[in-house]
């Protein structure tokens, strides 16, 4: 079954070249032997969108402390390890000073508050993700709903995506992370990772699939909004039309799906 599927994929690629995901998905749908009526489908309660996006209202953050519960919620749900050695750090969402989060937008004359608070940064789930362009195995790919995901089963650990990402949003498992997941901060229902693969924020794809909002959004006390950028009536679009927002490194043409109200 799988070999037939792979054959079709390869045949499809050689016949038509790159960038034909819809056709490939058509071939790849269905899950079981021919003749049986087994079907594979989305959960009924799943949240769906044309393009998921996030608006972070940084006016609601006053110190680094305000970020802590948000980061902790993500770390726990995704079994993020804690390493003594900062070189091996795994980070999905974390805090950065303005000059690091927005290096080309910093100026010494900005309001004091901007220089004092910590800005949450995470994968931007770009509309034109350079990491997806770089990956030699499609282990990182952009889903139909705009989420840039990792397929840990397929990643060969070449770290080309890390070089390609202009936001430093990707982490590599320099060693087996499992022994370093804090005992009191882990989630039995979510897998860990293995050594030698790259990982990053997944916009909580596993939670959207069961009708829940991302963990950071839930833990943010309303400071982070999440919704469909394609839907003019969504929360995120309302916030975007009512406030001036910035994106990280807009000039690079990656079109981040994460917006900041400063």
């Amino acid at each position: 079954m799988e070999s037939r599927r792979s054959f079709l994929k390869i045949a499809g690629i050689s016949a038509l070249g790159a960038g034909m995901h819809p056709t490939l998905n058509a071939f790849a749908s269905g899950g079981s032997d021919e003749g049986s009526k087994a079907v594979v489908k989305r959960n009924k309660e799943a949240l769906t969108a044309v393009r998921w996006g996030m608006v972070i209202d940084t006016r609601k953050f006053h110190s680094e402390k305000d970020l802590e519960p948000i980061i902790k919620a993500c770390d726990k749900i995704h079994n993020i390890p804690e390493f003594e050695n900062k070189d091996h750090e795994i980070k999905w969402i974390w805090g950065e000073e303005f000059k690091h989060a927005f290096p080309e937008k910093d100026s010494e004359f900005l309001p004091d508050k901007v220089h004092h608070i910590s800005f949450p940064v995470l994968c931007n789930h770009c509309e034109n993700p350079p990491c997806v362009r770089a990956c030699p195995t499609k282990a990182t790919f952009k889903r139909e709903d705009g989420i840039v995901l990792m397929d840990f089963h397929r990643c060969i650990g070449c770290r080309f995506c890390m070089a390609a990402c202009p936001y430093g949003s990707r982490s590599f498992n320099f060693r087996d992370p499992r022994p370093f997941i804090p005992e009191d901060n882990k989630n039995q229902e979510f897998p860990t990772r293995m050594k030698g693969v790259v990982e990053k924020c997944n916009f909580c794809a596993e939670r959207l699939a069961v009708g829940k909002l991302p963990a950071c959004v839930e833990a943010s006390n309303g400071a982070i909004a999440f919704g469909d950028l394609d839907d003019p009536a969504s929360d995120v679009r309302k916030l975007l039309s009512a406030n001036y927002t910035i994106q990280r490194k807009q000039a690079l043409g990656t079109e981040p799906s994460v917006f900041y109200i400063v």
Binding site: A28, A38, V39, V40, N43, H153
Partner: peptide, 13 residues
């Protein structure tokens, strides 16, 4: 199906 297509429900015959 789960990772790449977001289909998480399997209905057998």
């Amino acid at each position: 199906d789960v990772v790449r297509n977001a289909d998480r429900m399997y209905v057998n015959e």
